[in-house]
Amino acid sequence: MNLIALFRRRSSAPVARERLQVLLAHERALTGRSDLLATLQDEILAVIAKHFTVDRDKVQIKLDRGEKVSTLEIDVEVPSLTGLKVAARA
């Protein structure tokens, strides 16, 4: 182990502190709203369902928490293109 690795190994507390600050900022915001993702999933599904039929299980929502920016990833699996046209026309 070189000197830098030794130094890095020792200063784990600042990493712990930073991880906790980021995590708790989000957990506090979500307190009492633990169903936020489920709510989002329902509402997004309702909007999409106005235009074509999608399976509830085909809408995936992920939240990735960062210190400054969080990303909300919405993954909607739509029926094949022909199916979509039919659904969209209907």
């Binding site: 507390a13 502190r17 600050q21």
Partner: peptide
């Protein structure tokens, strides 16, 4: 250990 950066310091926990 806290002084060596191996453990959260009192101030860290208090601040959080």
């Amino acid at each position: 250990r806290a002084a060596r950066g191996e453990m959260l310091k009192t101030e860290d926990v208090l601040e959080i």
